[in-house]
Amino acid sequence: MRWSVFLVAALLVTALDGSLMGLFSVGGTAPSLAPLLVVFVAMHAPRPTAMWAGMLVGLLADLSTPLVDGTLRPIHLIGPAALGYLFAVNLVLPLRSMVLRRNPLTLVVLVALASFGCGLVITAIWTARSLLGESIDPFGGRSAAGELALVSLRGALSGAAALPMGWLLMKSAPIWGFQSGGSRMMRW
């Protein structure tokens, strides 16, 4: 995989997630393109590459997610999304040899699954932090269960967004330089 192409795509996805995707918000959350990028790479790149890529996308998500603590000091917590997307990649990797890659719904389902898996890890880490007496409220006043409901909705929205955006991503497949070649590519 060409890391330069991936880095540009990751920065673009991070920027769009924080701006344009809010246009499609439903119920207090918006779809995300980051799980789509992670799943796309996990479907085609070698296992270690996919895991590093997942962590990098998560790192960018962590760094673009400011929170404030009890003294109104902004905090960018590095780790939750990075570990979340690593977990998401590990959800997708065992499935990639079993799924029908030519079916567009495959990407939709895997993106929803990856988004939910990532959200699950993020929620778990923040819940663990709350046990340490942190004054940061990452869930905006919701309980962890309420946040999980939001995570599920976000997963469904991200899956829906994967249908058109995944098509665009697949069209760009030749420039990614995946070593597996055309035989492993999805063709819509």
């Binding site: 920027a15 701006s19 995707m21 673009s64 603590d69 917590l77 590095i78 880490i125 340490l132 942190e134």
Partner: peptide
């Protein structure tokens, strides 16, 4: 992930650098 928030002040500087890279695309979005 589990480090106390007071140890993480430096991450805002890293985030500011990232924001410079994503600002043009974010602005367009």
């Amino acid at each position: 992930s589990l480090a106390p928030a007071r140890w993480l002040g430096w991450t805002s500087d890293v985030a500011a650098i990232l924001a410079m890279a994503t600002a043009p695309a974010g602005h367009l979005g």
